[in-house]
């Protein structure tokens, strides 16, 4: 009985929105970034995306059937997980690896906790860090933008990590996504375009993305160069998975804090961790790790930023 009672702060209004509807709207909001990815990296990227979504749905259905629960693959959550995982993979990722990542995301990232709404960590990111730790070779081979053949190129962040300079790439190229990178993270314009509608409808709140990106910017501006206050903050904001992560992964309802204050703490935490890993860590990019670490801290953040009961 206990699990049927939902305890939350008032007001208890119903907006007439269902989880399923919101899920599919967020899914649609993600489509432009994927389309841009296919244009930039070629049709191989499309296969990775479709394969990832297919395997996420299949894993969800298989596990739910095997444990004799209702099969809920149409609620959109598994599809989003598959889509987001694909967006975090390089366009040339081998398909068996995509399948393994998709299965891991759904099985270990979500179903082990009891399914939708109960997972602690963002399932797509769980899948991604699993792949990153298991097969780093395939996870760090990126293809060159607009070349459509097997030419590989390093991401700007990887170049920065290796040689200390980001290579000559203009902000404009970064903004349009003309750079090596994961499928869904490259084209900033498409990401922002997609995020506009759910932001406007308040399906995703602005607190996390704003504080996350701002914190990363400020932190890299202060510590990003040999002297203080000389870092190329614009570069750090526009590269890597920051925009994708901040708008679409850090804002996941289930795995981020409930209150506004909590969300701000969450965003700042993500921003600092991302910047620290990028500047001093062994990996060029830290977005997935930062969000996962803050996912782990979410229950504690919720606990300490809980709205006070009126009158106490």
């Amino acid at each position: 009985m206990k699990d049927r009672l939902i305890v939350s702060a008032s007001p208890h209004l119903h907006k007439g929105e269902s989880t399923t509807r919101i899920m599919w709207i967020v899914f649609l909001a993600l489509v432009p970034a994927g389309a841009a990815g296919v244009v930039i990296f070629g049709v191989r990227a499309l296969w990775v995306i479709l394969w990832s979504i297919f395997f996420a749905l299949a894993s969800e259905a298989a596990i739910q059937a095997a444990t004799k629960r209702k099969v809920t693959i149409l609620d959109g959550s598994a599809a989003i997980t598959g889509l987001l995982l694909a967006y975090n993979l390089p366009p040339g990722a081998p398909l068996w690896m995509v399948a393994a990542g998709s299965f891991f995301s759904i099985a270990i990232g979500k179903q082990v906790f009891g399914g939708l709404g109960q997972n602690i960590f963002n399932p797509a990111l769980v899948g991604r860090v699993f792949l990153m730790a298991s097969w780093p070779k395939y996870m760090t081979t990126f293809s060159k933008p607009l070349s459509y053949d097997a030419v590989t190129s390093a991401t700007p962040l990887a170049l920065l990590k290796e040689s200390g300079v980001p290579g000559n790439i203009s902000y404009q190229d970064l903004f349009w996504g003309l750079r090596g990178g994961c499928i869904g993270e490259a084209c900033i314009v498409a990401l922002l375009l997609g995020a506009a509608f759910p932001l406007f409808k308040k399906y995703i709140s602005w607190h996390i993305p704003f504080t996350y990106i701002a914190t990363t910017g400020v932190f890299t501006y202060i510590f990003g160069a040999k002297t203080f206050f000389g870092g190329d903050w614009m570069f750090h904001v526009l590269t890597g998975g920051l925009v994708l992560g901040a708008f679409f992964m850090a804002t996941d309802y289930v795995t981020s804090p409930l209150t506004r204050r909590g969300q701000i703490v969450f965003g700042i935490g993500c921003g600092i961790l991302t910047a620290v890993i990028r500047l001093w860590g062994g990996y060029p990019e830290g977005v997935s790790y930062a969000i996962l670490m803050m996912n782990a801290a979410t229950p504690i953040i919720d606990r300490f930023t809980r709205n006070r009961v009126y009158g106490s």
Binding site: G109, F113, I120, V129, F130, Y289, A296
Partner: peptide
């Protein structure tokens, strides 16, 4: 998965995320 097994799996994911600090250098 109740209790122990899930606790281990959560610890495993936490360990994976701390992996992001690997190779840390100033």
């Amino acid at each position: 998965f109740k209790d122990f097994p899930l606790a281990f799996i959560i610890a495993s994911i936490m360990s994976l995320s701390f992996f992001g600090f690997n190779g840390f250098k100033f």
